[in-house]
Design a protein around this nucleic acid. Structure first.
Lengths: 169, 169
DNA sequence: CCGAACATGTAACCTGTTACATGATTAC
DNA sequence: GTAATCATGTAACAGGTTACATGTTCGG
């Protein structure tokens, strides 16, 4: 069974934290800074149900009357997660980067628009960067990805500086 | 009308190349190195149909009997593209990065697995990098995004080097 | 003439989104 | 008691994927 990115991320959540419930998995995605996860109930609950049907996660009833169930990985689930972690082709592919997608066309704009776009984007990158910096030191696993996100924003900022310097004047 | 990333990319394709047909737009996505575009007919043709219905692109019949139509942006389409290009919040958000998503858990693996994963990922990044380098100098607009993709892979490589050096021995 | 490439689309399916529905527990 | 939060899910919809269907043009 090939895992989607969300399913892999769900297995990751369950594996690296203990005593996780569906709700906590969902909230982890909701509070994630990445725009690619909405953490919508309509995505997370069905994904967990799929993984359970596929025998990759186990659920045992919790103690409360709310019907909460404690999730854990089965042996097959741990194997599937490892295969997902070690899949270099997927892990190292270039994902969907909205900045990169637009960058080519920014160059073709008139001088006035190029100035405007560089100002707008610098401000937006700096705002994102500030959010990311304020999020560090929450969790050793999350911090690694957060650090990579900061480096990506720094790369964008450097690129914008070059773009700026290439403008006349 | 808020544009999806695919719709924005379609407008970009049509705007920056002349005399584009649906087929050529589709092929541009098929040959794109980004894994996020499959260039499937079931995505591109409906997207073009939506944009046409929304009055953002115009189509005039071509000369051949194949039913090809030459696409161009309407005034509204050019405005929509510009708004999409200048939307800093979307452009500078952190997209879906499969490498970043996995990076946190790589740190939690045992020493043997950490060594294995760093080797696998370095090889995968270098393979991707080679593909990207061989693609440069095709088109001034595409080259900008290609250059950013190369920088992203270089960032990953640097990160993997640090990861490697942090390993005992 | 035949196969490859050009060219356009549709249908079944899967996954994710928003919005809604439902109920339990806790803090005040 | 009641508002916020915890907790789980479903329904309608949007968009993408694969696979298929159909016909044209061109090179050999």
């Amino acid at each position: 069974m090939a895992l989607t990115e969300l399913e892999g991320a769900v297995l990751t959540e369950i594996a690296h934290r203990g005593n996780h419930t569906s709700f906590k998995v969902r909230r982890a995605f909701q509070t994630s800074p990445s725009s690619s996860w909405s953490g919508s109930a309509g995505a997370v609950y069905p994904a967990i149900a799929r993984l359970e049907r596929a025998g990759l996660i186990l659920a045992e009833p919790g103690t409360s009357r709310r019907g909460t169930r404690i999730l854990s990985l089965s042996t097959a689930g741990a194997e599937a997660l490892k295969a997902w972690l070690f899949d270099g082709e997927t892990a190292c592919s270039i994902g969907a980067d909205p900045f990169r997608l637009r960058s080519g066309l920014w160059n073709t704009l008139g001088e006035e628009d190029r100035r405007k776009v560089v100002r707008t984007m610098k401000a937006a990158v700096e705002a994102e960067m500030a959010k990311l910096v304020s999020r560090t030191a929450l969790d050793p696993v999350e911090d690694v990805g957060n650090d990579l996100a900061i480096r990506l924003q720094q790369l964008r900022l450097d690129w914008l500086d070059e773009f700026d310097r290439a403008l006349p004047g």
